[in-house]
Design a protein around this nucleic acid. Structure first.
Lengths: 162, 162
DNA sequence: TATTGTTATACTCTATAACTATA
DNA sequence: TATAGTTATAGAGTATAACAATA
């Protein structure tokens, strides 16, 4: 047989929610802060028509002209089919060009057009400002420590997208 | 007229990709480490049939029996329609029960069933272990610092989901 | 036989509009 | 009039299978 029972109501009994357990998890804290920073980033990149991942791709091409699709996929953990779609957008917008690889007929070298370079110059400056505002609650020293420790977590094992 | 130009090929000229710019952004570093931790979390929660968000919801109900849907949505930044779907799953699996709110006829108090409590006891222990392994590259002191600084970033402005 | 890039598609997660019943 | 919860749906982001061209 079943048992029915009276249960407490949080809105009465817990005006403050106890999330102390979740806050012991690094995953929870890293995700929450990442989401908050990226939310602002998303708004600030809207005028450039770029998602966060698109920004990362174009930035890597900006700093590594001639980089290949495969290298971008591996470095940013993006699946090749999704990369194809984003690159088609870049090409349609006239932000990027592809040049045949000199020795590998399957691959292409990716580079930004003058228009793409100009866009990313502005976008990257805006991104720095956006990131600074989103992390205004910590000082320069704390910021340095935070980035160093975050890198220690994700930079150890070099992942690959097959 | 158009100009054609020879462009460098990264796979030849840059065996190592320069991502120094991206690594100056807190958003990039926080997202990368969060994704890496959550990837392992996702695998470890598979045997419990829980997504990361579902785990967070059930954990908050576990520690705050009687909490309402609205409180969960506000605290975890989840849109109400998405919460409804997840709660239906919890009910179907017999993990959760809803009891009418004593003074507000629109609301419900949420609590875990004995089965839900047992599941979350195991799941939360597994989550702690998973999180520890995912952050094994930093020591206890660094971990404490990291969580403190991450909290400073996201805990200032209390956001609301309308 | 393995790899780069591609197509098509599916799945998950997140977001919006419109509705109901209660306050 | 405002709020808690619901329904249906749309959109973004991520993942899988199968294939063509080249190594």
């Amino acid at each position: 047989m079943k048992k029915t029972q009276a249960l407490p109501i949080a809105s009465k009994t817990h005006p403050k929610i106890d999330s102390s357990y979740l806050e012991t998890l690094m995953g929870y804290n890293a995700r929450r802060s990442a989401l908050q920073i990226i939310e602002r980033f998303h708004v600030d990149m809207k005028s450039f028509g770029l998602s966060t991942v698109e920004f990362s791709i174009l930035s890597l091409i900006y700093h590594n002209p001639g980089i290949t699709s495969k290298q971008l996929c591996n470095h940013l953990l993006i699946f090749p089919p999704n990369m194809v779609v984003m690159q088609r957008n870049f090409l349609n917008k006239g932000l990027m060009v592809r040049t045949p690889h000199p020795t590998d007929g399957r691959a292409f070298g990716l580079s930004l057009t003058p228009s793409g370079l100009a866009l990313m110059k502005k976008a990257q400056a805006k991104a720095l400002a956006s990131d600074a505002i989103a992390t205004a609650n910590i000082n320069a020293s704390e910021r340095k420590t935070l980035i160093r420790l975050l890198k220690k977590i994700y930079q150890k094992s070099s992942k690959e997208v097959h």
